[in-house]
């Protein structure tokens, strides 16, 4: 007689997205994720409080709504795999890193609480990887590329693409290290797979980010030609 072992698997894997579910990460790794995320979020609120301009307020609402919707649009990449936008780089380019972190925290938090996309215990890690790291890295890369702005207006779009692509890889790398630290998947197994598939997903992220920036430049150039954050 066969004993049937109940295996806890995700019931509907055809859901449009999969953030880190509970069970992938060890308790200590998830806890450290929460500590870092809460600390950075506190800094972000403080900095946004000091620097937020009037224009940034409606733009924050718009970015959160758009990034949420865009994250639902999984696009196919090679080999029966899909990817979806993260949006942290785009938010940081348009809002600066601090308001972007607030926006991304709202998006990722609501996805876990309301839509059961991403675990509750690992929510700190999901916010850290997909919101905080993407915003900070995306912002840094974009500003660095912008030093070549004298070479023409296309530099901006190249910067947006590079910022978005690198931000996706950094998020994937962070997730991979956390999986290894959690003894879920060793680095030598997960690293090539995660970096490889997210190199393709990053191209999608880069194209969407550059297109969205081009759209904003065309329709509301005032949102990008002056810093959205107030001086001082």
């Amino acid at each position: 007689m066969l004993a049937i072992q109940p295996v806890p698997v995700l019931e509907a894997v055809e859901g449009p997205a999969l953030h880190i579910p509970d069970g992938f990460m060890s308790g200590p790794v998830a806890a450290v994720g929460w500590v870092i995320t809460v600390a950075v979020l506190a800094v972000a609120v403080r900095m946004a409080d000091r620097t937020l301009s009037d224009r940034a307020v409606p733009l924050m609402g718009v970015m959160a709504a758009f990034i949420f919707a865009a994250q639902m649009m999984n696009f196919p990449v090679a080999g029966g795999t899909s990817g979806h936008m993260l949006g942290g780089a785009l938010a940081a380019i348009l809002l600066g890193p601090w308001a972007a972190i607030i926006v991304m925290t709202a998006v990722v938090g609501l996805q876990a609480v309301l839509f059961q996309d991403g675990g509750i215990a690992v929510m700190g890690l999901n916010i850290l990887n997909m919101g905080i790291l993407t915003a900070l890295v995306g912002w840094g890369v974009y500003r660095a590329v912008l030093t070549f702005e004298g070479m023409g207006s296309a530099v901006r779009l190249v910067g947006a693409f590079a910022a978005a692509w690198i931000s996706v890889e950094v998020a994937a790398l962070a997730t991979t290290f956390q999986l290894a630290l959690s003894d879920t998947s060793p680095l030598d197994v997960a690293l090539p797979a995660m970096v490889g598939v997210h190199a393709l997903i990053g191209v999608g992220e880069g194209l969407i980010t550059a297109a969205a920036l081009a759209f904003v430049v065309a329709t509301r150039p005032d949102l990008v030609n002056q810093p959205v954050v107030a001086e001082g």
Binding site: V9, F24, T81, A172, S185, A193
Partner: peptide, 25 residues
């Protein structure tokens, strides 16, 4: 119209056999 294929993390979790560690919310 979104693709229903597994996304990056889910694909790696399936290929590297740790998808079954996922817990239901």
């Amino acid at each position: 119209l979104a693709s229903g294929d597994p996304d990056g993390l889910e694909r790696v979790a399936e290929d590297k056999a740790f998808i079954e560690q996922a817990e239901d919310p």
